[in-house]
Design a protein around this nucleic acid. Structure first.
Lengths: 69, 69
DNA sequence: ATTAAATGTCAAGTATTTTTTACATTTTTT
DNA sequence: AAAAAATGTAAAAAATACTTGACATTTAAT
């Protein structure tokens, strides 16, 4: 896939605004804390399913959390 | 990840409404026709980056194309 | 009816995400 | 200050996305 375009996100900010810990969020979307950390930290490109679940839990549009640059 | 929740999509319909072939869409998002076919056919869980690019090209929200059930 | 374009299938290999485990550091609570 | 909770780092294995190539079938165009 296009290597020049990088996926970024505002997950850390939004998660904290909502008042969830990484572990709580991980639990709510049935993934691990590691995966949440990887998304927040690294320029990591999670699956669409995971992005959708996160957006549902945080009550945001996918585009409000994830964007390409 | 949660195996009970499956990612589905309306890509085939939306792509045809917009009037793009699989190959054209693939080119526009810098992927291969195989990947487009896999998304349309199989219950395939593409990356968030790819989902976002597709949604940009088709001028739809990610949620209009992809959803979980 | 023939040709061309679009779609579908298969398989193998590569790249990346996700899980699991374990420990270190920082921040918050008491 | 001590304990508890939250966050960070690392690394290996497992699972899955993505690529490449080649061919079959269906649909649209001439």
């Amino acid at each position: 896939m296009n290597k020049e375009i990088v996926l970024k996100n505002n997950l850390k900010n939004i998660r904290q605004q909502v008042g969830l810990s990484q572990e709580e969020l991980a639990g709510l979307v049935s993934t691990t804390r590691q995966t949440i950390i990887a998304i927040e930290k690294a320029q990591f490109n999670p699956s669409t399913k995971l992005a959708l679940l996160i957006s549902l839990v945080l009550d945001k549009k996918v585009e409000e959390i994830f964007y390409v640059e």
